[in-house]
Amino acid sequence: MGKEIERKFLVRDNSYKKVCSGKLYKQGYLNSNPERTVRVRIVDNKGFLTIKDKGTGFTRSEFEYEIPYTDAEEILKNICEKPFIEKTRYIYNYMGYTWEIDEFHGENEGLVVAEIELDNENDTFSLPEWIGEEVTTNYKYFNSYLKNNPFKNWDK
């Protein structure tokens, strides 16, 4: 069984961009219910199907499979719930850990979050200087929530 152990944080500034470049991600949901999400994602010329549960603590079940790019395009266009989530993802290596920084576009413009995947919920790690508040358990920062409740509509 696939497991994902991750922590999620807001990002205070874009200094991470000095040392890494990003890739555009486009994703749509076949099911955006937080209890069990099913999404299709396109990155570069690859397609992916991902299934996740709500999980407990910092751990969720996650199953991800590469699918043909043309299938992913067709599913996004004709089957997925609208609107899509579009973001640029940056990969930042820091003190033995890989951080994924997502800069959202469109209706979620202005939101930037960073995630770190861990081997164990009790792993200790250092935070880069641009990391802000932890939002791991705040459902508002789940991509499946952002789809129907875009960041631009939040009370800031």
Rank of each mutant, 00 (worst) to 15 (best):
F63G: 05
E6S: 13
D102G: 02
R7V: 12
V38P: 01
K23T: 05
I101H: 09
L30Y: 02
D71P: 00
N148R: 14
E74V: 03
Y65R: 04
K82A: 09
T37R: 00
I5K: 14
I79K: 03
R41A: 07
Y141L: 10
Y69S: 09
T137A: 14
F142C: 06
E109L: 08
K52F: 01
I51G: 01
K87R: 00
K87F: 00
R36L: 04
E100S: 08
S144D: 13
L111H: 08
S144L: 11
Y97C: 04
R36C: 07
T88V: 10
Y97V: 04
E6Y: 04
K156C: 09
E109F: 06
E4A: 08
E81Y: 08
N14E: 11
R7H: 07
A72N: 07
G55W: 02
E109A: 10
I131P: 04
E121H: 05
T50I: 02
I101D: 00
V135K: 10
P128I: 09
L30N: 04
K26V: 15
E103C: 01
E134N: 07
K46L: 12
E73A: 01
H105G: 00
D123E: 13
L76M: 05
N78Q: 04
T124C: 06
K156H: 15
S15E: 09
N108I: 11
S144W: 06
I51V: 15
L118M: 10
N149K: 14
V112L: 02
N143V: 12
S32P: 03
G55Q: 05
G57H: 10
F48N: 08
G110N: 08
P150R: 07
A114N: 07
E103S: 03
E81S: 10
E64M: 10
S61L: 13
L76E: 03
Q27S: 13
D119W: 00
I101E: 01
S21Y: 05
S15P: 07
E100I: 03
D44C: 12
S144C: 15
D13C: 06
K156Q: 15
K152T: 12
H105L: 09
E74L: 12
P34R: 03
Y16I: 07
E4P: 08
K23P: 01
I101Q: 06
K17W: 12
Y16P: 02
N122W: 10
D155E: 13
G22I: 13
T137I: 15
K8T: 13
L49A: 00
G96S: 09
K152G: 04
I79F: 07
K140D: 15
N122F: 15
L76D: 02
L127R: 09
K8M: 12
R12F: 01
E115S: 14
I5H: 10
Y94G: 01
E100A: 11
D53I: 03
E74H: 09
K17E: 05
E74I: 01
K17Y: 09
P68S: 07
T88Q: 05
K26N: 12
T37G: 01
D123S: 13
E109S: 13
S32D: 14
F58A: 13
Y65W: 12
N33P: 04
K152D: 09
P68E: 14
D13K: 00
I116P: 05
L111F: 06
Y141I: 09
F151M: 04
R39D: 03
A72G: 11
Y139I: 15
R39Q: 03
W130D: 04
F48T: 06
T59W: 02
G55D: 10
G110Q: 10
E134T: 11
K17D: 02
T70K: 14
N33H: 08
